[in-house]
Design a protein around this nucleic acid. Structure first.
Lengths: 197, 197
DNA sequence: CTACTTAGTAGTCAATGGCTACATTGGGTA
DNA sequence: TACCCAATGTAGCCATTGACTACTAAGTAG
């Protein structure tokens, strides 16, 4: 997937190394702290080398966003697969989302920032990301759990809600405890009140 | 309000002019397109002048975020005041939010980006922003509209949801039409199904 | 073995943020 | 009124950066 060239050449796999360091850089310092030249230095290559893999700074940012979506999608997938019960699966999804935001606020920010002319690979990554919640919501819908009439819209509203909670956590405006409570509430709204008989 | 000095001095009111131009700049080009020197040129002052009003680039960004919150708060207030009916008031709030995102995606992005060590004035602006939805939700709660047990959490979840929808609109991932539909759905979830007798 | 493509290097340039020393201005006050 | 002083703006400087170009090295395919 993605635009991997993959084969070790002069350096090995510069592109992957650059992305790793870039990820690390934004984790401590935000997007603004990204510098192509610094990445080059970190990787031990000349300042022009990154240009062979990323047309410009924005291309690197886009690649990071794509990586972010792939990462989040993988975690959501794993969480969904680990819980057969719909309610638990739903909760697990939400928790993964919030955890992602708490761990990597800058990356989440990138992923939900407007990009003019996003590359097709990014658009595809976003699509794959939506597929996870889409499947979960559709499963619930078929099992009779229908908070709204249209499951497509339920899914979109769910993504919006989770992204919103995640953003509040990522920006430090609510605590992890509050976020956990909001996940409870979201679950109540989307799959109904807990049935503790 | 905020940190206005206000009195015309050498230039007039450089700070306000800089903020105006900055707002305009990010509207067409995002945060990355912000340049202190370009702002100075636009305002017809030397490149060092902005430094008297904003310690560094980040301070300008923070001031923009603050302005964004004040702007959004004012619009939300106006919308809330214009609708006595709870359901309509709720809808109006949501619509203002989404409209704001559609018009000013970069500003919304700023407002919900992590800031290390935000200035007190920004924190206060955020607080005032939360007050609007807080009051609306509490009013509804007292009128018996209680989607969740705790109104505080209802309010926070509402903000998260609206911010989420707004972000999806702002980033161009959903259309305005879809957003309108999601507002319907949000209203259904938070105020109950429409009662068309 | 040779030609071609990909990856990386080295040097250049304009623009930027941030710093410092200096000039100007207007309000408060002795 | 005259003076002082803090606020405001200026001018010059520097390191860093993103982007561009010409050149070199290294694999690969014919």
């Amino acid at each position: 997937m993605g635009t991997e060239t993959g084969r070790p050449f002069h350096h090995g796999n510069l592109r992957a190394v650059l992305l790793d360091h870039a990820h690390e850089a934004i984790r401590s310092g935000g997007v603004e702290a990204l510098s192509l030249r610094e990445l080059a230095r970190d990787a031990g290559v000349s300042h022009g080398a990154p240009r062979r893999h990323f047309r410009d700074r924005q291309a690197l940012v886009n690649a990071l966003a794509e990586r972010g979506f792939d990462l989040l999608t993988a975690r959501l997938d794993a969480a969904a697969g680990a819980h057969p019960d719909h309610r638990e699966r739903f909760r697990a999804l939400a928790e993964v989302f919030v955890d992602f935001a708490a761990t990597d606020p800058a990356l989440l920010d990138l992923m939900f920032t407007k990009t003019v002319d996003p590359p097709p690979s990014l658009t595809e990554a976003v699509h794959r990301f939506h597929e996870v919640s889409r499947r979960v919501v559709l499963d619930g819908h078929e099992a009779g759990i229908r908070p709204l009439a249209d499951p497509e819209r339920t899914q979109m509203l769910l993504v919006a809600t989770l992204q919103g909670i995640a953003t509040l956590v990522g920006t430090g405006r609510i605590s992890s405890e509050t976020a956990a409570a909001l996940i409870d509430d979201t679950t109540t709204l989307f799959v109904g009140p807990h049935d503790d008989r």
